[in-house]
Write a protein that binds this DNA or RNA. Sequence first.
DNA 1: ACCGTTCTCAACCAGACGGTTGACAAGGAC
DNA 2: GTCCTTGTCAACCGTCTGGTTGAGAACGGT
Lengths: 117, 117
Amino acid sequence: MTDELSKVFAALADPIRRDMVARLCVGDATVGELAAPYDVSMQAVSKHLKVLESAGMVTRGRDAQRRPVHLEAEVFELMTKWIERYRRQAEERYQRLDAVLASMDETEEDRQEGTAS
Amino acid sequence: MTDELSKVFAALADPIRRDMVARLCVGDATVGELAAPYDVSMQAVSKHLKVLESAGMVTRGRDAQRRPVHLEAEVFELMTKWIERYRRQAEERYQRLDAVLASMDETEEDRQEGTAS
DNA sequence: ACCGTTCTCAACCAGACGGTTGACAAGGAC
DNA sequence: GTCCTTGTCAACCGTCTGGTTGAGAACGGT
């Protein structure tokens, strides 16, 4: 799991990390602030942040003892691009399938995809 | 990891499964066809398909021995909605931050976020 | 100098994940 | 019927993951 996109999706697969992203959209936060709503140790939260950080979704600052967490929103573009690509492709496919089904009324080929249900 | 969204993100965290989704956008496929490009057993592919299926991203048909796999594109909407929500929220935040920074020129408060780099 | 706060690192543990092999069900083809 | 193809189920295995606890680093307050 070395590629960026995999890391981003994996990071977002955990509800706590999704919550944290949501929280960070409102503004930067410290580890303690991020940990507060959950019944887990700060160490666990620290680990979650490492996951988000290694996915490039978050950067860490320094303010005395505190390590403010900052959301890097650019990664959203990466996902959006991936999703959009295949969504569009899938939609095209449906249009092509319609065309195929239409032409099948006359040509009547052998077996064809789209037999499901 | 019981909720739909988590399952979808987790499913997409694996490059092989992302590839399969890409392949399925072109058209339905059998397990063997999906397994062919990879150096893994058909059983492994079968497992990947179970993951995609339990995430609601794929349905299985029946054509004699074959079990054609069909992509359910609707789940993309779910992800897109989640991502868009927070992306927009993040953008708003930046605008608000700009406003704050602008007003700081006159008020000069104590500490403020955005100290990083 | 000492204490308290904030946070990370290291070790450990149970469970999930991704892969394997082996057995077998389901359904044409002959 | 018997064989071959297609695919699933079950058991096993090594690794990753998400959590814990304990120790300690970094820094401000007094």
